[in-house]
Design a protein around this nucleic acid. Structure first.
Lengths: 245, 245
DNA sequence: GCAAAAGTGTTGGAAATACACCCATGT
DNA sequence: ACATGGGTGTATTTCCAACACTTTTGC
């Protein structure tokens, strides 16, 4: 039967494993990472060309089967590390997708993860030339149920970013308020008032002035800020937000 | 190998299946239901005595392995139906738990579901006398990682109930505002102002006056209301709540 | 008539919104 | 000098929080 070895040594192996699973009537478990990036004021997602004939020419999320000896989170980190060369990345589970026929080769339940990385980070290396940062806006058909997963993760992100400081993972460590606002506008698909946006963030007192300025901009440079995670951690979280639905 | 049959014919079968999984180095998939009820102004959860010797005398969530031919949601519904006799129940996936050693018998990834049911519903039949509605407040040790799962689901519920109308599933169809407020206070662990609470709900215009009154109360009876789900469905959801963290 | 909870409005403060002008820089 | 976005304050409105008395029913 399935040996407890690393199954991730190439595309062919996965196919063989899936075939085996299907023959034995076993449910496989995978993780799929929705890796978001932010570039040119647009939200992007890291995709790979599907290797299944059925889905040729369609884009697919980055995923892999979960090894027997690794936690789900570890599996997701592994996928991320293998594909981007980065660790220390924002990564969070969103939810499981387990429709019976979501994968044509075998029954596979997948755990979807959402990851946010800075596209321009120096450690980021997209070696595989099958990989591609795709604009979210112009993405319709995808392999498997990956479009559904992507949509769910996007909605999850829209909600999450308003309540937790994760957007900063998409930006360089030092960023201008304009960049931050563009980010929020891109993710939420709304226009925000610049002055109120600044007021909001300054009133939180979680942005540190780096006393540096933007460079290479053809206009007055903006100040660069850094998000103070330590201070955020120490803040007490409120349990009561107010009923509203 | 594993035949594609219903594995759920008794406790012994599960043990056999798990043993088989472990021997073959295969990851099992289960669902676990956190079934909340509301009684005597307290939040309760439906539990069963663990059948594992390691966890004897500890409480366990209601769960089962997922069949090969059923969706995750279906599996959770099945567990719920088998144990409570009820369908048409509120049920939603919370998230997956997949730590390597969370189950002593084998590697099992579980998908946690949160369910809300009316403890006093006439269709509710707790046949198994190993089952028990346990007060949430006085629950410390549980089998497996079920305490963690329960805690996560409770927090999920605390957040969810403020943004979505699911609390009504814990109450009879017709309820008084006092009952509703008690429910919110019990789930959130806070005291709320009665007048502001009423104002809030009335201003949503989603409660219908049934023109009936409470009976058998030793004081002035309150009006009974019904939640108007249709009207709620038609309301447009807002995407922008305001940044706050 | 007494105990117990139902029902009801107002007010002050905080937060969100809408809105317009001057400033610093690169070209 | 001019084009471009950076930076700032105020008035208005909306929402939330605090708070007390009268009414209805069962006993």
């Amino acid at each position: 039967m399935l040996a407890d070895t690393n199954l991730i040594t190439g595309k062919k192996d996965i196919k063989v494993v899936l075939e085996q699973l299907e023959n034995d009537g076993i449910i496989g478990i995978s993780v799929d990472c929705v890796i978001f990036g932010f570039d040119e004021n647009e939200l992007k997602v890291l995709l790979i060309k599907s290797d299944l004939k059925k889905f040729e020419a369609r884009w697919s999320l980055l995923g892999d089967l979960v090894n027997n000896h690794e936690d789900l989170d570890q599996a997701a980190y592994r996928v991320l590390k293998e594909r981007t060369g980065m660790d220390d990345v924002y990564l969070e589970q969103v939810r499981a997708f387990g429709e019976v026929n979501r994968h044509p080769a075998a029954r596979v339940v997948t755990i979807a993860y959402c990851s946010l990385i800075n596209i321009h980070h120096h450690k980021l290396k997209i070696l595989d030339n099958e990989l591609h940062w795709h604009r979210l806006a112009t993405l319709t058909e995808m392999a498997f149920d990956h479009k559904t997963i992507l949509d769910v993760c996007h909605e999850w992100l829209q909600k999450r970013i308003q309540e937790h400081p994760l957007g900063f993972s998409l930006l360089p460590q030092k960023f201008s308020l304009r960049e931050l606002q563009n980010l929020y506008e891109a993710i939420l698909g709304v226009k925000l008032d610049r002055r109120n946006f600044r007021k909001k963030f300054f009133s939180m007192e979680l942005l540190e002035d780096t006393h540096e300025l933007e460079s290479d901009v053809p206009h007055r440079p903006g100040k660069l800020y850094r998000f103070n995670y330590d201070k955020y951690q120490k803040k007490e979280r409120k349990k009561w937000f107010g009923i509203d639905f």
